[in-house]
Structure formats: C-alpha cells, structure tokens
Nucleic acid binder design. Structure first.
Lengths: 230, 230
DNA sequence: GCAAAAGTGTTCGTACTACACCCATGG
DNA sequence: CCATGGGTGTAGTACGAACACTTTTGC
C-alpha cells in the first residue's frame, strides 16, 4: 500500500545554555535563505546508515561545533503534514544542555552562522520550530524538579547562589534561600570544594560541585531527586 | 548530501488493557509470516499525506478494530539501523489504554489475527518490539503515579477495590487500603454513584466514577495528581 | 453464625514552610 | 563603618504512614 512512501526523516536539537541569570538557546541561520531567512534549530536529514542520535550529534558538530553535557530525545513532530513546505518531513527533536563555558565560544571554524539567543529574545523561527522550542521549555522546567539536570547547565564548580538563581530564573518562581540549600544538601549529592568564589563584593562563598557517582549510586538504592516549591 | 535518503517511517501502538487483576497488551500476528511468524505490536508504515497520529489510529482500526481511551506518543525508535531487517525503518511508538469492555471482543471482522496477552505471558516479539514494550511499561508505571490514567483502564463505573488492585498489580506494590481511599477521595475527582456492585460475596460495594471535567477544572487551578507509596 | 469483602478514624513521625539575624570581605 | 552577598536555626503545620475493628451481605 505505501511501498512508495516518500517521507524524509530529520533530527533537530534544542540546546539550552545558562549564564548570568539568563537562559539561552542555540540557533542557526539557515543556509539556503537569502538575507532575511529565518533562524532555526540546528538539525538536518538523517543519513541512511546512521542512528538518530548520531545524526543529531553530527549535525550539531557540523553546524555549531558544540559538545553537550546532557542529551535526550524530546518528541517527534510529524502531525503537520506541511510543516516543511518543501517536502513531507518528520523531525525527531532532541533536547540538550551545555554549561556556560560554551556560550562565549563564537561559532567555530566551519560552523555556520550559529548564535546564542536569550530565551525571551528568540526571533520568529523557521517551520514549526517555535512549537518545538516550547515543548523543550516545558520539558526543561519539568525535569529540573525531578532530575538533577540543573548541574549540566552550570560550570563544574559553582556557587549555591548560582544554582538557586538558575532554578528561580528557569521556573520563574521565588525560592527561600535557606530551605533550598537545606534541601539540596540533604540529598548529599553536592560537595564543598576547597575553593572560594572570586568575589565581586560581600563575603566569599564556597564553591560546590555535583557528585554524579554518588547520585548514580543513590539511584540504585531507590533515591529520587525532587524539588518542590511553594 | 542526503537527498537520496531512503528511510521508511512506521508507527507502532502499545495498547494496554486491564481485567481481573491482570494487565494485558494487544498483539497481532504478522501477516507475511508463515506458521511460526512472530507476534508483534500493531502498526505499519505512515502514508505520505497522513499525520503520525492518524496513521496509528488507522493501523489500529485496520488491524484490531479497537478504539482507545487514552493515547500519547511514547518514543521514536531509530537508533538501531537494522531493527527491521528488510529496510531502514524508524518507528514512532504510541502508548494507548483501553477499558476492559474491549478485552472480550474477539478480533473483529476484517481485523487480522489480533489477541490480548497477559503482560507476563507475552511471547518473543518481532523486531525490537520487546524493547518498545518495556519502555511502554515504564511509562505506564510512571504515569500512573502522577496522572489519573488508571481510570482509562477501568469501566466507567468501578469499585474502589478495583482501582486499588489496579495500582497494586501494575506497580507491584502493596497499598494500604484505608490510606489509598482517603488519598483518592481527597482529590475530589471521583464520585459515588447510586449503584452497588453485583456482589459475589461480602458486603455490597458502592460504584464510583471518575469526573474528568472536575479534574480538568482543577488542573487549571494548579492541581497536581500524585500518588506515592511506601 | 460464619465467611468474605467493604467501610472507617486516630496516632505518630517526618518533611515542608515561613521567617530574621549574624558573618566575612572590599572599599 | 558601611555595603554586599553568604551562611545558618527554629517553631509551626500539614501530610503520609502505620495500624484494627465494625458493617453488610450470602450461605
């Protein structure tokens, strides 16, 4: 019946970064466009002999030359038959996080025109990418509360205030500093380091790091990370 | 570069049912096989002009003639390039629930050889369908605790003991009957009916029903369904 | 009157909430 | 000595956990 199926399979990546109390997303300028072509999520067609995950990683490398800290499949968009006007295309979207060290690296070498946008300054996007981004935001907010993915948006060592601000900013909620700290520390998955913040003002703050081994060990024992708010 | 992409897009459905303290999954016998061909999840190739959701619904109708109570995208399987030995195929898997009234209906009319299997008596499946089924089970267990999808596996009116057993069975946990009832009732999303159980033995039990309108209204007010266990 | 399942209340402990003051540093 | 952010403790409350007896029916 549909032996002459003609549907293309693409992958797209939503890559989030975080810096200075701001959430960012990585976009590329489409190559085929003329001057006012839309910005779009990095992505492209899957090759015949390549897994979906390999395809996203390849596209990300080709288009932005960035490596990510966290990575998972988000959703497959294929209900709008005309989402790409050129052809029937379905897109498997992936959700990724990078730490702030990646944000300043300007689009590398053979990278195309890639750029970080503050999440509330994202322009109109190509195809249905605005919808995809919306779904990625939902996932980010949800996962932040029940998996320790916030650490993948921060440098290896970080201040408690940075972690706290990350939660406030992304979830758009107020958090009690004391309760938040108690809660996180009670999990015993973040550890003090010997180092202190290069302070701008005020009392120097300890730098902390996330102990992923310990988190994985706890997971096996049935531990469940969860942060709730008022 | 990949203008000659040759990847087929399929959809598969994992349809769960529940009856008599047993979870069931719906499988079909593959048509191209000879006698000992594998059982498989219902599904097939997507047509060029059809959305992914429409494709699953169509395949379900063609192959099993069953309509579902709950429906959502599960995951897209496309990392194993050789998951289908005939061709490169990626499969968008959907997760569905039906109530027990569907379980007794033998494969209808033009339905192929469709059959319900107890979840712990599922045979070896075609392709990577065992993996897909595993992922669907995970999703079912998880969702049961944070969304009121258990009701979609039960008849419109049901006994508290049935609801409780559903949770026990699927989650493989023991539940305190009194705490469970209190918890569910506190949500105010299930209501008594005037009817009583056709009793086999013991004291007659009230029949309850799930009020979906009320649930949706509460959702808007920020309500969050959640059931935890010891 | 006995077996079988339904229905119900209380106590206890833990975990979340709310909240305010002192500390260490740089300028 | 002042401004800036960092660091900490306590009391009240609400919710989940544990737990056992009574009720209604059929036989």
């Amino acid at each position: 019946m549909s032996e002459n199926q003609n549907i293309k399979v693409a992958v797209d990546a939503i890559v989030f970064g975080y810096q200075n109390n701001q959430l960012y997303v990585l976009l590329i300028q489409q190559k085929f466009g003329t001057k006012d072509s839309y910005w779009a999520l990095p992505g492209g067609l899957v090759q015949n002999d390549e897994s979906l995950e390999d395809a996203v990683k390849r596209e990300l490398k080709e288009e932005t030359n960035i490596s990510v800290n966290y990575f998972e499949q988000l959703f497959t968009f294929g209900d709008d038959v005309f989402r790409d006007p050129r052809n029937r295309v379905i897109s498997v979207a992936y959700f990724a996080l990078v730490d702030s060290s990646k944000l300043n690296v300007k689009a590398d070498s053979d990278a195309e025109n890639a750029q970080w946008f503050k999440i509330d300054e994202v322009p109109a996007l190509a195809f249905d990418h605005t919808i995809i981004l919306g779904k990625a935001m939902e996932r980010l907010k949800a996962k932040l509360t029940y998996e320790p993915i916030g650490f993948d948006l921060l440098p290896k060592v970080f201040l408690f205030s940075e972690l706290e601000n990350l939660y406030c900013t992304i979830l758009e909620k107020e958090i009690d500093r004391r309760n938040f700290r108690k809660k996180i520390l009670s999990f015993e998955i973040v550890e003090e380091t010997d180092h202190f913040s290069p302070l701008k003002s005020g009392r120097p703050a300890k730098l902390f790091k996330f102990n992923k081994q310990k988190y994985n060990a706890l997971l096996d024992k049935g531990f469940h990370f969860e942060i709730k708010f008022a």
